[in-house]
Write a protein that binds this DNA or RNA. Sequence first.
RNA 1: UCUUCCUUAGCUCAGUUGGUUAGAGCACCUGACUGUUAAUCAGGGUGUCCUAGGUUCAAGUCCUAGAGGAAGAGCCA
Length: 505
Amino acid sequence: MVQIKDFKGFEGQVIQTQGWVTNKRSGKGLEFIVLRDGSGYAQCIVNANDVSEAIFATAKSTTQETSVKIAGKVVKDDRQEGGFELHVSQLSIIGTSPSFPISNKEHGVEFLVDKRHLWLRSKRQWAIMKIRNRIIFSINNFFQKEDFVQMDAPIFTGNAAEGTSTLFETDFYDRPAYLSQSGQLYGEAMAMAMGKIYTFGPTFRAEKSKTRRHLSEFWMIEPEMAFFDNEMNMDLIEQFIKYVVADVHENCKAEMEVLGRDTSIFDNIAAQEFPRLSYAEAVAVLKGEQKVDGKTTIETLENDLAETIATIESNKAEIIAKEKEIAAGVKKGKRNYLQNKIDGLKNQITDLEVKAKNIPKWLKSAQDFKFGSDFGGSDETVITRMYTVPVMVYNWPHEIKAFYMKRDASAPDLAKGVDVLAPEGYGEIVGGGERETNEALLIEKINEHKLPMDAFDWYLDLRKYGSVPHAGFGLGLERMVAWLCKLQHIRETIPFPRMYGRLKP
RNA sequence: UCUUCCUUAGCUCAGUUGGUUAGAGCACCUGACUGUUAAUCAGGGUGUCCUAGGUUCAAGUCCUAGAGGAAGAGCCA
């Protein structure tokens, strides 16, 4: 058996392959079967002159997603995706596929999510899953080459470490247990044993939020390093993101093309240093008090708004022109083509109108931002709009950060945390910082957050026995995938999304 | 939890001020065509108009409630 991606090594030879029929075009005496095997796509030509009547009839009877075994000759053809096609000599059906529900045309979101188990077979999903796989591979490569030890943190946890409202409760031998929201505290313990570690596991949050950036179950990478301060932490984050982006850029060119992803931003990321803003600076940028490249957020967003409105108008004009063309009478193929263009433009207009409505709201909420609070989704969008690479925001007011975040000795109201905001409107992909090593301050914080002290005795032990400065961060895998693929919604980044209101399939 | 929008054929959608027999494209089937790239061309039938009430001579269309979905907000160390 030869996989489609390996056809190029078999030019002129007769080989065997197997896969699924993803599309078919037929003529008299000719069947063009587009075969998919997970490694790639190849057109297979069944010519009635070259095969028996029975085989030709079998080929003709295949439908979308019929699985088949094929023997044929690999022939170079520059018109084909991948550059090769197969001239079929033998064909047999492995499994039939009567009326596959997902056609090669357009579908709505609800339908596709309901059919997720079949949707995964489509080309776009194939590309996303390949990229997800590469990102995971690349993350592991990076940390392994940097001498980090991969560790698995527990998924059942016995305490409500982060506040009970967003925890999934389960029954653990008649006692309540919660699904993990973070492996970090365990990672800290392991870092004291191994030096540098990273966890890579599932995370569960029972937030009742339905947005394009939230999942109830997602995967997180959490490195933790002994003897690191927040500066070193930020250096590592930048190095890490640059490594993964460059690796994906290098190895997922075909997949990015399927998605229509403009990859020029990846070159910027390799070439530029990530801006590092203190929280105070970030607020000044947000409010338009500090310019970036000679522009304020207000100027940039008002410019965006004008552009958005202009695009809406030009789209509307284009629709009218195309509708006139159809009304004047054109052939069917041309009509379909024009109609599809019109539908696409209409969808674009809907999105743009939402954007046009949102921009003034974003600006207002940026103007009204209260120093000392956390950034909302729109604030992140406004800040990152000013840059073409990820932005790091550090030195946060300690009140809005987690109890374990290290306080700044020289500025007692600040904590040494860092958030990384991805550009292109994707917002927070990394949250991290230096950890508090002072046991008394930690106890004070645990009380302040009204957390159960007895749940943290083991964690406090880490400060009792040879405590050292240490830092770490967490990266949400799905948000990284969404950003690198430039997806509208996070639900496409994971094979079977678990979100508020969605447990099936 | 709040705001706005949506629910019509297997899928994507159109359906005018309420009006008599509810439409198109795709998918599917049949036929034509020996190089198609979402092939093309001709023909073929398919409806719990989300559910329950209401207004009306008449409801896919208007009103009320509910269910499901989408976008945004809140929430998201």
